[in-house]
């Protein structure tokens, strides 16, 4: 494997966004790119990352290799990379270590780290292609703000999507709160758009602890997309350049 990123920033942010959700995971490398799928310890949330080969310049991977990595250790190594550094990830066949090289833009500094790999026997879940009943795109910063505000009211949020908009409702001991985002297009700045497509109305409840955790990915993308269908896990997607993505799945809460 040899994969070179123009700026370490992307990889630093991706790892930062998932390291509190999953501790040990395989980065599955093959000729289409670097992928990762891992569930949190409670098996309630799942992260699915794809960094496509086109994200790297260049990208070369001659055979499928899983790089089993402790994300806490990786975070320590990535601290040594400045956001603007060129990052190269390298690995041999059947590796014991992954090699990370950080180069300053002006090429006067080269840092090189070897990170020990671990054997991780990871369960992969099959995520079916789903036609979601409702898809809502909104500014990622707005979603983060809504989740963190409502977490102060309640542990759970009900998300309701209709043609008019998407409503987040929390009911707690101190009272209730709700935030509605109405569909709208900002002609000046499409990053501010709220776009809803719907085949049927959806109402589901989710843990805000997990949703606020997903929002650690906010810096990766201006917009976030929520995909919902009744009685299936929510998908929260941060789309990245070159068809790369960071997706989170969260199982719903069901009333008893």
């Amino acid at each position: 494997l040899e994969a070179r990123l123009e700026a370490a920033d992307l990889f630093k942010k991706v790892v930062e966004a998932i390291k509190d959700l999953v501790q040990h995971c395989n980065f599955d490398c093959n000729d289409s790119g670097i992928a990762l799928q891992a569930m949190d310890n409670s098996h309630v949330a799942l992260v699915s990352m794809m960094l496509t080969a086109d994200t790297f310049t260049p990208f070369r991977c001659d055979r499928n290799i899983p790089l089993g990595i402790d994300l806490t250790s990786l975070t320590k190594v990535l601290r040594a990379a400045q956001s603007s550094d060129i990052l190269t990830i390298k690995s041999e066949d059947a590796p014991d270590v992954v090699n990370l090289v950080f180069e300053g833009k002006d090429q006067d500094r080269i840092s090189e780290y070897d990170l020990k790999l671990m054997d991780i026997d990871q369960e992969h879940l099959g995520i079916p292609d789903t036609e979601y009943a409702a898809t809502a795109s909104m500014p990622a910063a707005d979603f983060k703000r809504i989740c963190s505000d409502l977490l102060l009211i309640s542990e759970a949020v009900s998300i309701e999507c209709t043609k008019e908009g998407i409503t987040f409702k929390a009911e707690g001991d101190i009272g209730n709160g709700s935030v509605t985002l109405r569909q709208h297009s900002d002609l000046e700045n499409s990053d501010k758009n709220v776009d809803i497509s719907l085949t049927e109305p959806v109402a589901l409840s989710f843990s805000l602890k997990y949703l606020t955790g997903f929002c650690k990915a906010t810096g990766l993308s201006n917009q976030v997309r929520l995909c919902l269908s009744n009685d299936v896990p929510l998908m929260v997607e941060y789309a990245l350049a070159n068809n790369s993505y960071l997706r989170f799945y969260l199982a719903p809460k069901i009333g008893d």
Binding site: H43, V44, L46, H124, I127, P233, A251, D256
Partner: peptide
């Protein structure tokens, strides 16, 4: 009261 589902209810191991 609400009960938290697990993902394995929806997604099966590959």
């Amino acid at each position: 009261h609400q009960y938290q589902e697990q993902l394995s209810t929806f997604f099966k191991p590959k």
